[in-house]
Design a protein around this nucleic acid. Structure first.
Length: 522
DNA sequence: GGCGTCGTTGCGTCT
DNA sequence: GAGACGCAACGACGC
């Protein structure tokens, strides 16, 4: 039987390494490539203008690639549970394909849509291709426990072997019996939205640094893979958070939207490494992909992963609620030029270096402002092009020393850290031109400059640029003590403690182990 | 259960 | 300029 198939693009905005799309093309007579603008996911309150533009770029690129295969992309607005019953009927669909996703919202959404599909007699096929591995399989391999360290993660992955090889994009040969019924008013009914459609003010549209789309992703990948020596010697901690142009690949937004397949990236790196001495995880580029896998695994295995409450591995901390401080951080007016420059770059370009994220995240949480990592998570979710649910939640927990990382006395200085890689403060001057004329010795702490120096620089601290909102030397020491207290409370309540919890869990499974042993004896 | 080791990327000071 | 050390001492994991 020849199928009428809807392939539902969500993440996975690409043609290469797209097994669900290939499954759609099997025994297919009519193909409807679909993207649903879901109000739950595509809302201006949680998607910043840069991310919205990136998505639109990715969709336009996808449509362009589909046209080359005599097909088109259909964009439909609405809740999936409303959209699909309508489309199943209208298109007389017999099959629905999509790429599996592990986010809690995606899981519940897909469950609902699958039920609806069954009610309409539509077969559902999904494939795993967003992550290197089947995440459930990773947890299973670890005896059902979620790995909480990278080392453990590496050990599991070792037993699983290398990830599957990516598959090529469909060709005209795959499409020879397939048509996409398109009407003349396709643009009107199923067109791709424009940037202004989400209600952002396009007059404030910053310059686009990282255009979305699969073609750009593959171009960018190849551009970097040509740099064999750089790839082989790549060590993340050695790259600079405050260089004037990115010191890393900036492939993360493309991997996040699935414009670039993680497996394609992985195996392309393997090609480059072939026969050469090269760096290794956790610091290598392979290592970076494994970090992504690590946080995806944690996000699947740990309930309430994006929250402190109800998250049993997360240290419970009595964070302050301080709307003024939070706003100052978000709006780049903390009075610490290094922090403010990073937050400016984030808002303007949608990407900041990983270590820059560390600096501002530590500052917001355990370092200085003592504000919940969940607040930071929201801001990153909105502004980062690569804002990924699992990675964002995982890294915020890491940096706030709530989960995974526990050496809370290692605090990033908003003054000293940036100096290590940018003594003159060129990065600060790029993003905060107000401070352009400040001499290098005061650029990280302009409030220390004598009045005459401030006047000569044309920028008075307290008038043109804010006073620092906290005294870092004093407050960071105090916060280490507060962190210590939070940890003490944690170990005082064994049920809340992750290690004890795991122990309880182990005890629970030991019953099963006993039963197993008994079974073996029988 | 106890103990030792290790942990992607801190800072400031000393040599 | 690079490396070692004290800071005060965390949890996860493995044996």
């Amino acid at each position: 039987m020849a199928h009428t198939c809807i392939h539902w693009f969500r993440k996975g905005l690409r043609l290469h390494d797209n097994p669900a799309l290939m499954a759609a093309l099997k025994d297919c007579k009519e193909l409807y490539p679909l993207f649903v603008l879901d109000p739950h996911l595509h809302d201006s309150s949680c998607v910043g203008i840069n991310r919205w533009r990136f998505l639109i770029g990715a969709l336009k690129d996808l449509d362009l690639s589909l046209r080359k295969l005599n097909s088109r992309l259909f964009v439909v607005r609405g809740k999936p549970e409303d959209v699909f019953p309508m489309l199943f009927n209208q298109w007389k669909a017999t099959r629905l394909t999509y790429e599996y996703d592990t986010e809690p919202y995606s899981l519940s959404r897909d469950k609902t849509v699958t039920t609806l599909a069954k009610e309409h007699g539509v077969e559902v096929i999904y494939k795993i291709s967003h992550t290197l591995y089947d995440i459930d399989r990773v947890i299973e391999e670890n005896n059902g426990k979620t790995p909480l360290t990278y080392n453990r993660m590496q050990a599991i992955v070792q037993t699983l072997g290398p990830p599957k090889r990516p598959i090529p994009a469909p060709t005209m040969e795959n499409m020879k019996d397939v048509t996409t019924p398109c009407l003349e008013n396709h643009e009107k009914s199923y067109g791709i939205p424009e940037v202004e459609d989400l209600g952002h003010d396009i007059a404030e549209l910053p310059e686009e640094c990282f255009p979305g789309g699969e073609q750009e992703a593959l171009r960018r990948l190849e551009e970097h893979m040509k740099r064999t020596r750089w790839v082989c010697s790549f060590e993340k901690p050695q790259t600079s958070p405050n260089s004037l142009s990115p010191s890393t690949t900036v492939l993360s937004p493309y991997v996040r939207f699935g414009c670039l397949s993680a497996r394609t990236f992985w195996w392309r790196l393997t090609d480059v490494y072939q026969g050469k001495e090269h760096s290794a995880p956790p610091v290598s580029l392979h290592g970076q992909l494994l970090w992504r896998e690590f946080f995806y695994t944690a996000s699947v295995g740990i309930p309430n992963f994006n929250r402190m409450e109800g998250n049993h591995v997360c240290t419970q901390v009595d964070w302050d609620s301080n709307p003024e401080h939070l706003a100052a951080w978000r709006e780049a007016r903390t009075g610490f030029p290094f922090i403010d420059a990073i937050m400016t770059q984030l808002r303007r370009e949608g990407w900041i270096h990983h270590l820059a994220r560390h600096a501002v995240a530590c500052f917001l949480t355990r370092g200085d402002l003592w504000i919940s990592w969940e607040e930071g998570q929201k801001v990153f979710e909105e502004l980062l092009l690569d804002g990924d649910w699992a990675l964002n939640a995982g890294n915020w927990q890491w940096l706030s020393a709530s989960t995974f990382f526990h050496q809370f006395f290692r605090v990033y200085s908003p003054v000293a850290f940036g100096k290590k890689t940018d003594k003159n403060g060129d990065y600060i001057k790029k993003y905060l031109p107000l401070l352009k004329k400040f001499p290098a010795e005061y650029i990280y702490e302009p409030w220390k400059a004598p009045r005459s120096v401030q006047q000569a620089a044309g920028c008075i601290v307290g008038k043109d640029y804010p006073q620092p909102i906290v005294q870092h030397e004093v407050i960071s020491k105090k916060n280490i003590q507060r962190m210590k207290l939070a940890y003490a409370k944690r170990s005082a309540h064994p049920a809340e403690s992750p290690s004890k919890k795991q122990a309880v869990k182990r005890k629970g499974t030991s019953v099963i182990d006993m039963l197993k042993k008994k079974h073996r004896k029988v």
